[in-house]
Amino acid sequence: MSRWTREQMAARVAQDIPDGAVVNLGIGLPTAVANHLAADKEVVLHSENGVIGMGPAPLPGEEDYDLINAGKQPVTLRPGGCFFHHADSFAMMRGGHLDVCVLGAFQVSARGDLANWHTGAPDAIPAVGGAMDLAIGAKKTFVMMEYLTKGGQAKLVAECSYPLTGLGCVSRLYTDLAVIELAGGEATVIDLAPGLTLRDLQALTPGVTLKQA
């Protein structure tokens, strides 16, 4: 069985982002999607800290710490990009003005519930940032994650055991093993990693009945 690499996963997400879309890429895995957006597509990147039209990282020596992304790394601004305050930035999410957001996850349920902010461990420091606003705000919420935990358990589950970020908000899962559409409580496999069968994936996913597209 082969797995898609993180870069392949990012490229697969990028494929599904249409020309003209306004997109927020979450911290971690989703950040890599920006490197795979085709040059002939005009995709506008939004960052929660008040910038839209974000460009790639600056050249060494050109970093400006007044111009950073949600991960607090220096970025650049594309022509047409602009700045706004935090309430406007989150109005763009909550008000449904973003087409797509791509988030990481600990768990996703077949109903599209998302858990990605807190492990719930007693000594963990809880931190939510913009995750809850993004999850429920964008027109489409994509999740990008490894299919299995380090312990080999599927992160696609019947019910999330981790604290929830949002209810019924995830429409698509992009993983190293498969791409899965979530709609109406059903999980439909759209793409499988080379050499993997639906039966193999189902065996790894005891909690959820997978359908073939």
Binding site: V128, G129, M132, D133
Partner: peptide
């Protein structure tokens, strides 16, 4: 506080809003 709720709760105070309903 979720970040957008934080920003909006602050804005609400400044705008004289007594509370608001948010999906977040």
């Amino acid at each position: 506080v979720p970040q957008g709720n934080l920003a909006e709760r602050i804005r609400a105070a400044g705008a004289g809003i007594g509370g608001f309903f948010t999906p977040t």
